[in-house]
Simulated assay, not measured.
Amino acid sequence: MIDLVINARKKDLGGFEVGRVLPFHQRRMVGPFIFLDQMGPAEFAPGAEAINVRPHPHIGLSTLTYLFEGEIMHRDNTGATQAIRPGEVNWMTAGKGVVHSERTDPLKKSQGGPMHGMQAWIALPLESEDVDPSFHHHGEADQPAYENGGLFARLVAGEAYGAKAAVPVSSPLFYVHWELAEGVRTAPPPGRGAGGYSERALYVVRGEVEVGDQTFHEGQMIVLEPAAEPTVTAKRPSTVMVLGGEPVGERIIWWNFVASSQAKIDAAKADWKAGRMKLPTEDDLEFIPLPDVPSTPEPAPKPDQTHPV
């Protein structure tokens, strides 16, 4: 029933801890999901640095940000400036190249408060790798939800349980948020043997669940066998993200770049290093350099040196 269990690896991002789940050396992807982080939970003191991710580039993927607590301000070079709050979705498709930043708004920073959420990267299929970048924000009304008998389920992206979310995905996938009261029993979307998805996984954000005859706790991803049809039982109140979909093929992941070929990765590295990727208009005074150059903030590229990739 269970193919693999992945324990989130703790990463300190300068005063803010994440749990890195994907990629994993034994399992690079689940469906098109190629990267998954649990952000926090954290409690920032008033005036603390909080979230401060400088502008950086992506290619070949869509990013999906989803929060349980807190707020993050997104800015990118498509012109989007959008705060995301709990229960909402920020969906950014990089395609041939996008640059964005994620920061805590100065007012929120002065107040302090909690931060907890999930960051996922979804690899684009070959036919979408070089699309123009785009950004979409979706509120709770765009995400089908169900609540009954101690189970709350929200379809964040894709299709599952006969419903479809508004997020403009590029390949077959699903991403579901469960809140389970103690004792609640439920099941993931069907697997390949039942005419469903080829690859599926459960990630326990908090609490403890039983899958088959095994118990799993927060920070663990349970990758299911393709034909498995398990019942999931909450041993105590739990938050679980359920995800999967159809594979899009082998992908190379290097830093913030995802691609089907090394040539695309190398071109993106050269473009970013040479300042050929435009920074967000409202956040263009600094950026994150390539990992092989000094990590201190550098001056932004001159306007005449930048253009969208």
Rank of each mutant, 00 (worst) to 15 (best):
P299E: 11
H25N: 11
N148R: 14
S101W: 01
Q111K: 06
A228K: 02
E282Q: 10
E250T: 12
L36N: 05
D105K: 00
A94K: 00
E182R: 04
V205H: 05
D284N: 15
R54Y: 10
R54W: 13
S295K: 14
E179R: 13
A141V: 10
A267C: 08
E210C: 07
A48V: 04
G139V: 03
S101N: 05
E182H: 02
E147L: 03
Q111W: 02
F24I: 01
V131D: 11
M1W: 07
H58Y: 03
R206G: 11
M115T: 03
L64M: 04
P308R: 08
A153V: 10
Y161L: 15
L36H: 08
K302V: 12
Q143S: 11
G183R: 02
T81L: 06
A263F: 14
A157W: 00
E140N: 11
E69V: 04
G47E: 05
V98M: 13
A145C: 09
R276H: 13
G113F: 00
K235F: 07
H136A: 13
W254L: 09
K108N: 02
E282R: 13
R9S: 14
D37I: 03
E179Y: 04
D304R: 13
G87F: 05
L173H: 06
E179T: 12
R85G: 10
H137F: 09
G249A: 10
P308T: 05
T306L: 09
R27N: 12
G79H: 08
S261M: 06
V211C: 10
M277V: 14
K269L: 14
V53C: 01
P133S: 09
R54K: 13
H307D: 13
P247D: 06
K278R: 14
P237C: 04
N52A: 11
I265T: 06
T233S: 11
L22W: 06
I34K: 00
W91H: 07
M39A: 12
H56R: 12
A141P: 00
K10N: 07
D37K: 08
P23Q: 03
I72K: 02
V209S: 12
K269N: 14
P247L: 02
Q143R: 13
H136W: 06
A83T: 00
F174T: 07
D3H: 13
L124P: 14
P230Q: 00
F257H: 07
S198I: 01
I253F: 02
I2M: 07
M115F: 15
P125Y: 01
S101E: 03
L202H: 05
E246A: 15
L151H: 13
